[in-house]
Design a protein around this nucleic acid. Structure first.
Lengths: 231, 231
DNA sequence: CGCCTAGAGTCTACATTGTAGAGACGTCTT
DNA sequence: AAGACGTCTCTACAATGTAGACTCTAGGCG
């Protein structure tokens, strides 16, 4: 009568063995849907139908779990270090990363914050992969290694900056987008913030994609100037 | 015999009345010296010789306290919106903000993260001041208001990005700067991270100031191009 | 077939955190 | 003198991360 009975284990609801990927992706979807604060050990345990303590077999502690989530997200980013057209590649990566951030806005604080408290060499490897691959891309495009590093920094710096900017204005509360924005701005004392208040309508329709693209164009052309004189 | 006796209150150790500024700057120095995690209500209370609960008179809750700290730090940043040389002004602000960040590295996560969960209009006013003033600077320099906003975004985006980049490599553990960096890198599997490992020495001497300046130059010249055609 | 071992998951317990609510204490006003 | 108010303290509680000992199951070996 109940075809759902799992024959092997005690047939509890959906109770196959856990695994790191299962745990991490459950964590990610929790963060995506309810925010970083909702990711507590107890809650995640409950989500997986397990005692919270079971999780410690797959992540040493909460911080490691957060790192795991970062890694998981960054793995969604594809980079092709062999593309001969490095500018096009960097531009595409920028847009991809932007969309990734919009898809997982609650993870962005992690991406930005965790490396600040972890020296380069101790970070989760998945986190370093983009760095390595972009370096590779640039070096193969003809940059001297040291220059590649400089270019990477300027590029990634701008890119992260843009994403942070855009997310800040996105009004995390997705319900009352424009209304609340203006309402919010309405609270500002007009004497001290005339410009901001005037710009409210412009703020409201922010085309992040176009703006990113422009910025990247400016940056790339500036950076390319470094390459051309010596090629 | 004890000239330090406070005549008025029960003469407890250093017990004049608290004030928001006192609380906030105690919070800031705690964060500066021991990191964000050390800033608990209890600890801060102890630092001020008060019951933790006393703090709630000066900040509604912990989050508000963090906002206060952000504000306090950003107030250290001077902006002169009337400077006719907007490029020079932006360049100086960039360097000032960078140094501010290096002076208060533990606050940077706050600066970056808190706005992500607070809509524009509800942020602490001190946090919005730089935005307003830079807009003012640009508009007075001849940019159309909407363009000023674009320029601001590109500029601030790059600036924050750079600061994050630089802090990430600074190895927060200030004791064993270069050694630990290389040791850390040494752990990376050579097959997967050849570029990064090769670049270790270059990574080690990162001249953040120069690099910021170059980036700003590139950006400013790109941005100025927008202004000139119509002036 | 019985036992043993190892790994996965659970249970209990504890220190630490933010913060609500009621009260204590002092100072100022009238 | 009395009351009101602002500042601070005390007590208490729910929630969190996580250590340590336990249970349970599956599989290997005699």
């Amino acid at each position: 009568m109940s075809p759902e009975e799992n024959p092997v284990p005690p047939a509890a609801p959906g109770k196959k063995k856990l695994s790191r990927e299962i745990v991490l992706s459950a964590a990610l979807s929790l963060v995506d849907s309810e925010g970083l604060d909702a990711l507590t050990m107890r809650r995640l345990g409950q989500e997986l139908g397990r005692d919270p303590m079971a999780l410690y077999r797959y992540a040493e502690n909460r911080a490691a779990l957060l790192d795991g989530v970062s890694e998981l997200v960054l793995n969604e980013l594809a980079i092709f270090p062999d593309d001969p057209d490095w500018q096009a590649q960097l531009r595409r990566i920028a847009h991809d990363l932007r969309e990734l951030a919009l898809r997982h806005p609650n993870v962005v604080p992690l991406l930005v914050t965790r490396p600040l408290s972890t020296p380069l060499g101790l970070r989760p490897l998945g986190t370093l992969r983009p760095l390595e691959q972009i370096l590779s891309l640039l070096i193969e495009a003809g940059f001297a290694p040291a220059d590649a590093l400089h270019v990477y920094r300027a590029y990634y710096g701008y890119l992260y900056g843009h994403i942070l900017n855009e997310l800040q204005e996105f009004v995390v509360d997705p319900d009352e987008n424009e209304a609340l924005l203006r309402l919010g701005l309405h609270r500002l004392p007009p004497k001290d913030f005339p410009r901001l208040r005037t710009l409210a309508p412009v703020l409201a329709d922010y085309d992040g994609k176009a703006e990113l693209d422009e910025g990247i164009t400016i940056l790339l052309s500036g950076l390319a100037a470094r390459l051309s004189p010596e090629t």
